[in-house]
Simulated assay, not measured.
Amino acid sequence: MTSSFRLANIRPQTAAVILLAALPSCASVPLHQGTSLSSYKDMAASGGSLTKAKLRVDPASVLVARTVRIVPTSAHPGNSGALDPKGLALVANAIDRALCTGLSDRFQVVAANQPADLVVHATVTDIVPTNRTAAATSAVASLGTSVALAIPIPRIPIGLGGLSVEAEAVGQDGAQKAAMLWSRGANMLTTKARISSVGDAYSLSSAFGGDFSRMLVRGHDPFKGKPAIPSIQKIKASLGGDPKYDACKAFGSAPGLTGAVAGQLGLPPSWSDKGAAAPQ
């Protein structure tokens, strides 16, 4: 290679790889503190390789609890006016569904009109909108290339969205027993592009529900320790089957295989997710 080598000599495919490598591979979503928690004191920084979090948990109070009630998630991000209201409702409900399924591993989930040892409530504090044009381009390119080469390809790392949520569990005495601030951005490898402004937030909602419910089930930081094998009831519910407890039916059934196919095609969440069940 001589000193006269220039960028123009680089093959287009190689140049594309270099360009993609120079772009951020995931969206950056800062922790967004809202106003819905009863206390923000004594929260310790935590999180994983993709997730930012701050949390606190009282193990003794959480582990002695046997019943839990879920208050439907509130969704009031600062940019809510720019988001599709139906899509925003699907994000909130997907969080509730994930919480209900995850908490069912140890707790009995009771209906809204029943007393419980713990009351859980989450609030969407921020959503980084997904760029629908970029998502559409990624979905088409991924589908065509995957079919031609029989291998998945990363999505275009432009216009990636994200989600920020806060939640707490309150005991019968009205005191906070556990709390979490949580944020995560979509990434080009594991988050499928959906042609919706809330596409990435919807995809990430189950990750939050899993992290928060795992904190209550285990009674400690969910980002520490070895990952657990999903329970049979969790697998059944994720495939669209009936949940373990009737109270979880309020949040509707998971899209299951239909949702997985819709995700692969890049379709908006509303194409496969029916949302919360109609009030009885």
Rank of each mutant, 00 (worst) to 15 (best):
S80V: 08
V64N: 13
S74D: 15
A141K: 12
T137R: 12
A139L: 07
H121K: 15
T123L: 04
G47Q: 10
R132P: 01
D96E: 01
A116I: 05
G159I: 08
S61L: 11
T51M: 03
H76M: 09
L143N: 00
H76Q: 13
T137L: 14
T130S: 03
L99V: 02
N93M: 10
A148K: 14
A150F: 11
T101I: 11
V124H: 08
T145S: 07
G102A: 11
G144M: 10
G78K: 13
L143R: 06
A75S: 14
T145R: 04
I158F: 12
T67F: 04
N93W: 10
G159M: 04
S74C: 07
S138R: 02
I127V: 15
S39D: 14
L83F: 01
L63C: 02
A150Y: 08
N131D: 15
C100T: 05
N79D: 11
D84T: 11
G161A: 03
T133N: 13
G87Y: 10
V68I: 13
V62R: 08
I70S: 10
P59M: 01
L83M: 01
G161P: 02
A98F: 06
L160E: 00
L143D: 01
A135S: 14
A136R: 11
G78M: 09
G81P: 12
A89S: 15
P152F: 09
R132N: 06
R155D: 00
I151Q: 13
S49D: 09
A150W: 11
V124E: 10
I153W: 03
G47W: 09
S46F: 08
V128L: 14
D117V: 11
A98W: 05
A94H: 13
V140C: 02
V57H: 04
P157A: 06
L149H: 01
L50N: 03
P77T: 12
H121L: 09
S49Q: 08
A65K: 01
T137S: 08
R97A: 04
H121C: 07
L83K: 02
L160I: 09
D42I: 07
Y40Q: 04
Y40S: 05
R97W: 00
A60V: 10
S39H: 11
N113G: 02
A82H: 03
S80I: 08
L55K: 05
C100V: 07
P77D: 08
K52R: 13
A65P: 02
A60I: 02
V128T: 15
P115I: 13
C100I: 04
K52H: 07
L99Q: 03
V64C: 10
G102H: 02
V119C: 07
N131L: 01
G48E: 07
P72A: 05
T137K: 12
D58E: 13
P154T: 10
L103Q: 06
T101Y: 00
A111E: 14
F107P: 04
K52Y: 00
L83G: 01
P115M: 07
K41H: 12
V71A: 11
R132V: 14
T67Y: 06
G81L: 14
T73R: 07
T130E: 00
P152S: 04
T101W: 00
I127F: 04
Q114Y: 03
A89C: 09
G81Q: 14
G161R: 02
K86L: 12
A135D: 05
I156W: 00
R69K: 15
Y40A: 06
R69P: 02
D58V: 09
I153R: 08
L83S: 01
L88V: 01
V124I: 15
A89T: 13
L88C: 03
N79E: 09
I158E: 10
